[in-house]
Computed example of a mutant assay.
Amino acid sequence: MRIILLRHGQSLGNVDESAYCRIPDHALPLTPVGEREARDAGPRVKRLLAGAPVAVYVSPYVRTRATLRNLALGDQAERVVAEPRLREQDWGNLQDPVQQEVLKHQRHAFGHFFFRLPNGESGADVDDRLAAFLTDLETRMGAPEHPETALVVSHGLTIRLLCRRLFGWSIELFESLSNPNTCEERVLWHDGAAWRLDRPFEQWRTSPDGETQT
Rank of each mutant, 00 (worst) to 15 (best):
M1Y: 02
L12T: 09
V15E: 06
V15H: 09
V15S: 07
D16K: 02
S18H: 13
S18L: 14
A19R: 02
A19W: 01
C21V: 03
C21F: 04
P24T: 08
H26S: 12
L30Q: 04
P32C: 12
V33P: 00
E35W: 06
R36V: 09
R36S: 15
R36M: 13
E37S: 07
E37D: 12
A38P: 02
G42Q: 11
P43M: 08
L48H: 07
L48M: 14
L48I: 04
L49W: 03
A50K: 15
G51P: 04
G51Q: 07
V54D: 00
V56H: 00
V56N: 01
Y57Q: 03
P60K: 07
V62F: 08
R63S: 09
T64E: 10
A66I: 02
A66R: 12
R69P: 00
A72T: 09
L73V: 05
D75S: 13
Q76Y: 08
A77E: 14
A77N: 11
E78M: 11
E78T: 11
V81M: 05
V81W: 03
R87I: 04
Q89F: 06
W91G: 05
N93W: 06
N93Q: 12
Q95A: 09
Q100S: 13
H108D: 14
A109P: 08
F110R: 09
G111S: 04
G111L: 02
F115K: 04
F115I: 06
F115D: 02
R116S: 13
R116C: 13
G120F: 13
E121M: 08
G123H: 03
A124F: 07
A124K: 10
D125P: 07
D125F: 08
V126F: 13
R129V: 06
R129P: 06
L130A: 05
E138T: 00
R140G: 01
M141Q: 15
M141W: 07
G142P: 04
A143P: 01
P144Q: 10
E145Y: 07
H146Y: 14
T149Y: 02
T149K: 02
V152M: 00
V153T: 07
T158I: 12
I159F: 03
L162F: 02
C163V: 08
R164F: 03
R164H: 11
L166D: 00
F167N: 01
G168L: 01
E172K: 08
E172W: 03
L173T: 09
F174S: 00
S176E: 12
S176C: 13
S176F: 07
S178G: 11
P180H: 10
E184V: 07
E184H: 08
L188A: 05
A194R: 15
W195F: 08
R196E: 15
R196G: 06
D198A: 14
E202N: 15
E202F: 09
T206N: 14
P208F: 13
D209C: 15
G210R: 09
G210P: 10
Q213W: 06
T214C: 12
